[in-house]
């Protein structure tokens, strides 16, 4: 069943169907989840010697936390999870292109290796 975007459907005639269903609870729980991840991120700064992310694990842990936050916002708040797949593909085109282009650029400048970059 298809409805065009410019059809005016007054919510008052929908027998309460709209009122009864709400995604708000999901959004609030998602925000709490994101806040907890942010607290963990800040904790890595306050306690850099914590066993979970001590030494070389700090950067991977921060990257994972960042990625989880990134995709949670993308899929829940930006509705990619509920929307048409073409939008996901469109966004990933830009994202993947950016990641590859800038990994190539960072590699050109030898950022992955110790020592001078010049």
């Amino acid at each position: 069943m298809t409805v065009t975007s410019h059809d005016n459907v007054p919510t008052t005639v929908l027998d309460g169907a709209v009122k009864d269903y709400s995604r708000d609870k999901v959004y609030v729980l998602t925000a709490i989840f994101l806040a907890v991840l942010t607290i963990i991120e800040v904790f890595t700064y306050a306690a850099p010697d914590f066993p979970v992310w001590a030494d070389e694990l700090l950067i991977p842990v921060l990257m994972i936390l960042m990625a989880v936050k990134f995709f949670t916002i993308l899929y829940v708040f930006m509705h990619l999870k509920f929307d048409k797949p073409i939008l996901t593909r469109l966004f990933y085109m830009g994202l993947v292109l950016a990641v590859f282009v800038y990994i190539a650029m960072l590699s050109t400048f030898r950022i992955w290796f110790d020592g001078k970059h010049g």
Binding site: M1, V3, D7, V9, P10, T11, V13, L14, D15, A17, V18, Y21, S22, R23
Partner: peptide, 9 residues
């Protein structure tokens, strides 16, 4: 009107 789905439905 009621036969049409809303976002929530």
């Amino acid at each position: 009107l009621t036969s049409r789905p809303t976002l929530a439905e």
